[in-house]
Every structure is written in structure tokens, then in C-alpha cells.
Write a protein that binds this DNA or RNA. Structure first.
Length: 283
DNA sequence: CTTAAATCCTGGTGGC
DNA sequence: TGCCACCAGGATTTAA
């Protein structure tokens, strides 16, 4: 499921074919995803030039030359497929339309971008480019984990006094934006912190240590091209491979990978989500 | 205020 | 072979 690294991978795949190109045709196949599309979305997109494709947390923002930006969220099963790209890097001819192809953007450079999302937890909206950060979906987001605002002091202060498990706190997008279930599990493993530990009861030095670990986990995943668990695919339609290097996620019952540890990975459920961890290594 | 639980959705899986 | 229960989970909404 697309977390920050996967969304960044999609952005990097889409940017070369979208930036500087105009949307020649916008096909909207249904009235909504998770929420209704904005009024006249097709008309507001048609003819617009994409100046820049940005990312904020797990959201993509395509800045148009009309003062509006297209916000895109992949939800948990959303995919962006590119075909017919004039740069010749992606898949060649346009494939036949598939079930759950909800939005199709034909660019004036010949590229076609298809948004496919079986579970429809994704979203699209149009918002003013100026002040985009005030959009309801963006306004309460915490700092970017790979940016300077995500500091050790920020995390320590954000978790102080919190009675919720550290696992849930790191999934809270107001504390840090972009982490999902996979990378929270992986970061806690590397930090040696049990997911059940109350966020406000962890020694400050250990909390501070989470900051560079979170950065490393996300950076490595981006470098690996994002993961491709289940139905997620990279923007170019190829499956990724980062899932092979998870230490704990999805490894219930398997041996802990830490050298010298003979523990096995456990799965517990917190707030309705699976947490994977090693009881020997994480306290 | 904080925290927990319910909600949305479809495809895949396992049990019988 | 089919039917059904269950699970995956990001972000919001509702409840406590």
C-alpha cells in the first residue's frame, strides 16, 4: 500500500511525462472515489498545462497553469499507469481499459496516465495552488519526515505525555506525515522499541534516535523504488522489489534477522492494524 | 482535550 | 464448485 516512499516513486515516474505537458483530454469514468470529484473536473483539467508535480506526505499535487492544483491520493490500492510515453521509457502502446480505471489523462505529448483503484480509498480534488496547504486534507499534517522540520526536538515534544502506543502515535499524520503501517513497523524494529510501548513513556534519547532511523528507512525504500506489496505497482507498470528487504512486516513466525537473535517475528493487532515485531529485540 | 472504535471499498483467501 | 466470513488499511467520523 502506498506510503511515502511509494508515492515519491510514483511522482518520480510521472514527473517526466507530466511536467511541461498539457492535458489534452480528461476522462472521468465515475462521479467519485472516496469523495465526490469537484464540479466540472474534466473541463477544469482539459487544456491545462502541468507546471510541476509535487508530493506532500502521501499526496501528489499537480500544479496547473490556471492557478489550480490537482490533488491525488492513492488510498491503499490506487495505481498510476503510464502508457504511450514519448520518451520511450515506459510501456509503449495504450493497453485496453481495465476494470477500476477511474480517471484517464491523455497528455498532449502522447502519454496516457491511468488512475486505477479497485478499493476506491483514493481521492482527487482541485484546489487553489496558492494556499494549497490549507486544504482540509493537508492542513493538519505534521512535518515531512525527510525535511528539516522533522527534528529530534519536534518528535520528543510531540510524543510527550502521550498515552497511546508508539505504533499508533507514529501512524498519526499530525505528528509526522507519510508513515504507514509498513514503515512504522520497520522503524520500530531498527530502533529496538516495542510497538506497544506508550509514546510518552519512552526515554527521550530513544525517541530522538527514531528520527534518523525513520529517515533511513524511508530513504532506503525510495532508493529501492518503493515497495510493491499486493496490488501496488510503480508508475511505469513494473513491480518493485523493496518488500524483499523488510525485516519484520509480513514476516510473522519467521526468524528475526538481527544477528545473534534467536527470536521469531510476532504479529499483534493494535487499533485494528497488524503490528510485526521481535520481542527479543524490541522493548 | 485524548483515545478508541466504526466506517468506507473490493479482491483474495481459507474453511466447509 | 460455490458460499461465506474474514482480512488488508488511510483517513475521516463518531463515540466514549
Amino acid at each position: 500500500m502506498p506510503e511515502l516512499p511509494e508515492v515519491e516513486t510514483v511522482r518520480r515516474g510521472l514527473a517526466p511525462v507530466m511536467e511541461g505537458a498539457r492535458i489534452a483530454r480528461a476522462l472521468i469514468n465515475r462521479p467519485d472515489l472516496r469523495w465526490p470529484f469537484p464540479p466540472d473536473m474534466s473541463a477544469r483539467l482539459t487544456g491545462a498545462k502541468v507546471e510541476r508535480l509535487r508530493r506532500r506526505s502521501k499526496y501528489l499535487l499537480a500544479d496547473l497553469d490556471r492557478g489550480e492544483s490537482l490533488l491525488i491520493h492513492l488510498g491503499m490500492s490506487g495505481r498510476m499507469l503510464v502508457s504511450g510515453d514519448p520518451l520511450g521509457r515506459f510501456v509503449h502502446a495504450h493497453p485496453a481499459a481495465e476494470k477500476h480505471d477511474h480517471v484517464v489523462l491523455d497528455m498532449d505529448n502522447g502519454a496516457r496516465i491511468t488512475f486505477n483503484d479497485p478499493r476506491r480509498f483514493g481521492a482527487m480534488d482541485l484546489l487553489p495552488t496558492t494556499g494549497a496547504e490549507a486544504h482540509p486534507l493537508l492542513a493538519k499534517l505534521g512535518p515531512e519526515p525527510l525535511g528539516n522540520e522533522f527534528s529530534q526536538s519536534h518528535l520528543v515534544e510531540a510524543l510527550r505525555g502521550r498515552n497511546t502506543p508508539i505504533k499508533s502515535a507514529l501512524l498519526d499524520q499530525r505528528i509526522v506525515a507519510g508513515l504507514g503501517n509498513i514503515y512504522v513497523c520497520e522503524a520500530l524494529f531498527r530502533a529496538g522499541i516495542a510497538p506497544t510501548r506508550k509514546a510518552g513513556h519512552i526515554a527521550e534519547a530513544r525517541v530522538a534516535g527514531l528520527v534518523p532511523i525513520i529517515r533511513d528507512v524511508l530513504s532506503e525504500a525510495i532508493d529501492a523504488g518503493g515497495s510493491s506489496l499486493r496490488d501496488f505497482r510503480q508508475a511505469d507498470g513494473e513491480l518493485g522489489y523493496f518488500q524483499h528487504s523488510f525485516d519484520v512486516y509480513g514476516r510473522e513466525g519467521d526468524a528475526c534477522r538481527r544477528e545473534g537473535c534467536n527470536g521469531q517475528i510476532r504479529r499483534i493487532v493494535q487499533a485494528g492494524r497488524s503490528s510485526f515485531y521481535c520481542r527479543q529485540c524490541q522493548r
